[in-house]
């Protein structure tokens, strides 16, 4: 058995054990507030077929993608300026620390108050929440840029585009990966809270609705389906991307 299949087997077995434990608890104690796996699966199935789950899932995923993309662009810009220019760093460091420590909830509430209860407010809230973390990551990345390699580009008089694309940016790939990893996991959690508080669609909104009506099987069905989507995204997009841009590190 290779290492990869062994790891996969252990992963599957541990998930299966968890599932059995859950079913066991339900059979033995028959708790009112914990539906069994079969009930959750049935609810998932009906929500999926009615089209409600896919629709809200798509809405939320779109919000996650948009706000994540904007946060990366804003964070990269700010982080680059701060990493590159000492003066900018001096002026923005204190506000950055401040915003890093601002509770996400406060930013969300203020976004809704200032922008209104609309789609834009959802994106603004998430971007404001995530940009400072991204900026910190990219600032470190830009500080770690190897000037010696840039000099190679200067001596050989590479075009600005080539210098940026082939010499500067690849040095930031590890930081992009870190930002994506930590960002994706956090962004969707923030999006759910934003939706719960002030949107009329999306996973967070539906979860809030189910909470009002005590529909625990639906809450679990929605939550699990979303987790599965994120895990699949990680496996299908991020890991292959990482393998591609980091293949030079392989011995």
């Amino acid at each position: 058995m290779t290492l990869a299949t062994r790891a996969l087997a252990i992963r599957s077995a541990s998930l299966l054990l968890l599932l059995l434990l859950w079913q066991g608890v339900v059979i033995i104690w028959q708790p009112d507030l914990l539906p069994g796996p079969r009930q959750v699966a049935a609810r998932f199935w009906s929500e999926w077929h009615s089209g409600v789950l896919p629709e809200n899932l798509a809405t939320t995923l779109l919000r996650v993608t948009m706000s994540f993309g904007l946060a990366v662009i804003a964070g990269l810009t700010l982080g680059t300026l701060m990493g590159r220019f000492h003066r900018v760093d001096e002026w923005f460091d204190a506000p950055l620390t401040l915003s890093l420590n601002m509770p996400a909830l406060v930013v969300i509430i203020l976004s809704f108050l200032w922008v209104g209860l609309n789609e834009a407010a959802v994106v603004v809230a998430v971007v404001l929440n995530k940009t400072p973390t991204m900026a910190v990551i990219f600032r470190e990345g830009v500080r770690a840029i190897d000037k010696g390699l840039l000099e190679v580009a200067t001596v050989h008089r590479l075009s600005p585009w080539r210098r940026f694309w082939s010499v500067w940016l690849p040095q930031l790939y590890p930081y992009f990966l870190a930002a994506t990893r930590s960002g994706l996991a956090l962004v969707w959690k923030i999006v759910l809270v934003v939706e719960l508080l002030g949107a009329s669609s999306g996973m967070g909104f539906k979860l809030g609705e189910f909470f009002q009506f005590f529909e625990i099987d639906a809450i679990l069905a929605y939550a699990l389906s979303f987790v599965v989507v994120i895990v699949v995204l990680e496996a299908m997009l991020i890991r292959p991307w990482e393998a591609r841009v980091m293949r030079w590190r392989a011995p």
Partner: peptide, 9 residues
């Protein structure tokens, strides 16, 4: 240069 300074990627 004194060091090879190759792009590792």
């Amino acid at each position: 240069f004194q060091e090879p300074r190759l792009m590792p990627w």
